[in-house]
Design a binder for these strands. Structure first.
Lengths: 350, 350
DNA sequence: GGCCAGTGCTGACTCGTGTTAGCACCGCCC
DNA sequence: GGGCGGTGCTAACACGAGTCAGCACTGGCC
């Protein structure tokens, strides 16, 4: 006799449920999709529900995707450079939002290769994603291929010049204001030095500096110094060291990002200036190293998680109005900012 | 008259191609899937190909997925803690491998919540992924829910006790050997101090220390000191500072990870010891800060990119033998290791 | 001229689901 | 008792592809 053997465990389908509940597949479908406009007796409804649960029925989303042209799936396409620690946050926020809206995310990276980008784009469209997020690692302007316009699309951390596409970017300008306000609030007034300008036409740099200067101006003061350097810890180290040898020490330092702040810490340590007792340090990005530094670095965070979350949420809710959503950048108030110990003679109590 | 208006641009299907090429849909299907066992004249083949290209036909993968039960899609499920900068690398490697094998990756994170994990798991299965990668941020042992065994599964950066599942992990032990060998090669022999043991039953720590000690032993020497501290820069800073005040300075320091190395740098700077002239520093992980430090940190890299790549490749090629694939950890030879300047009297030329 | 083998293509079914049109039954009313 | 309105369900088609069985035609052979 031919033993039944281990059944190859086919997945249970709607038809299985219908058969077991002794109704037509149509009826099962109506009950399981929860449609009320078709008259199904309460009795049958319960029976189908119960049988479905008992058999562990789960709809085959490949099939519904085909039938409905909605796959409950989004694509996240980024140009992420592998070394960026922010990529994880962006994906994390996106992934969380997707889960909340019962979606799943395809994630892929083009490394800036536009041919690869096109291939990935096609691959997602071929799988009939319901929408796309196009993300960049650094906030910048992008151009989007024309055929992309056929599909729901949200730009993440980037924007198009025309502003004709929905996009999510960090509010860098407000962050600049916040930075200056924080130092002013701690009592720093006229011996605040900026480290890192000019960022070569980089959105973040331009906006941050703009916000800082505007805030200081409206408080009736200005930067006491402006140390130029690239956004690398090594250059920041060298540049600040040179500055400190030729100028009076500032009471506070605004570093345009955490990498610069790291270089600044090392330079300050080299000349024997202590943070925050002698020099306060405030920075931007809240990269992983901020809490590792001694003392822990006070910095204004790039809200990558929140941005990713927001972008996917826009797609999921269909709120696709053109224009930029600016996500606030929160201050991570740690221990590198303190009140200035000695007042310079030109400072005044506020 | 009812103007034709802008056609809602329905995607072109195989049926469209067949119609335009004046063949049956069956024939179109055979040509487009490149099947040769069915006899189609070369003439018709060319015609179909040409028409398909002209119309820009692309198969609907939701449909083939349904028909074939193969979606050309994998799922990557991780417990990633958002703050980890390594997540990006893991995903990057996986994504690249997927692209190479014409697959797309669902990526999702559970944040260690097993209920969320189960939901994501279901969501992927419901979308009929061809296989799953289960990834952890830190190398560790995991337990996999039983029903997962029904699907092709590769463990990434983790393993099951029984070893019954294919898994990809970093070769931490070999890295320990490499670390010791590197210092020995630079001339450090008997004044090498370890900073960071014991890692509380952490795989990476155990293996690294094991490799280091074994290598030193086989070279006829041993660690000159063992400074215990947690894997945080702050604790490393404090612990090393205390050690340096009570002991002769080592010629080389092995830090069990880069965070510890950062604390060590700051402590060495505090007591006026220069890297690498007076103390060489060697570390593990190659986190983002390694190249930012002054001098740049020599460290043995966690091969997250390679591991992600390998895991997806295993799935794509179907090479799913049980047991662990150990991925080598490359030395990033920067500038924090140099030959010791002065020999201690007990050292001998090698 | 009828049979056979080979060539080249197509009809019809399938995957698992959503949806429209319509069928069978019941009770009521005149 | 025959039409009629309502109730409760189902047959049949569609989504876009892959695949099996078989049909129509040709040419050669006895």
């Amino acid at each position: 006799m031919n033993g039944s053997g281990p059944v190859p465990r086919r997945r249970v389908t709607q038809a299985d449920v219908a058969r077991a509940a002794k109704v037509s597949r149509t009826t099962a479908s109506f009950v399981l999709t929860g449609r009320t406009d078709m008259r199904i007796s309460a009795d049958v409804q319960r029976r189908v529900q119960r049988v479905a649960a008992a058999l562990g029925y789960r709809p085959n989303l490949a099939a519904t995707g085909l039938r409905m042209s909605r796959t409950h799936t989004f694509g996240l396409l980024s140009d992420t450079i592998a070394t960026s620690p922010f990529a994880g946050e962006l994906i994390h926020g996106s992934s969380d939002a997707a889960l909340q809206h019962d979606r799943l995310l395809f994630v892929a990276e083009s490394e800036g290769d536009s041919e690869v980008e096109a291939r990935l784009f096609e691959a997602m469209i071929d799988r009939r994603v319901d929408g796309l997020v196009y993300a960049t690692m650094f906030t910048r302007e992008v151009t989007i291929p024309a055929h992309a316009a056929d599909h729901p699309l949200v730009l993440l951390n980037c924007f198009v010049r025309s502003g004709s596409l929905p996009s999510v970017i960090p509010d860098e300008r407000a962050a600049g204001h916040e930075a200056a306000r924080t130092l002013l609030g701690a009592g720093h007034y006229d011996r605040v030095v900026l480290l890192g300008e000019p960022a070569p036409r980089v959105f973040a740099g331009r906006e941050r500096v703009g916000g800082i200067k505007a805030e200081l101006k409206s408080a009736g003061t200005r930067l006491a110094g402006n140390v130029r350097c690239t956004w690398s810890s090594h250059d920041a180290y060298d540049s600040l060291l040179r500055f400190l040898r030729e100028n009076p020490a500032p009471t506070a330092l605004i570093c345009l990002n955490d990498r610069i702040a790291l270089g600044a810490y090392q330079a300050l340590s080299t000349v024997g200036l202590r943070v925050p007792e002698q020099v306060s340090v405030l920075s931007f990005d809240d990269s992983v190293i901020a809490p590792w530094l001694v003392p822990e670095l006070t910095t204004i965070a790039l809200p990558h998680y929140a941005m990713g979350h927001r972008a996917v949420e826009l797609l999921a809710t269909g709120a696709l109005e053109p224009g930029a959503v600016r996500v606030p950048m929160p201050l991570r108030d740690r221990t590198s900012v303190a009140a200035p110990r000695e007042r310079s003679d030109s400072s005044r109590a506020r």
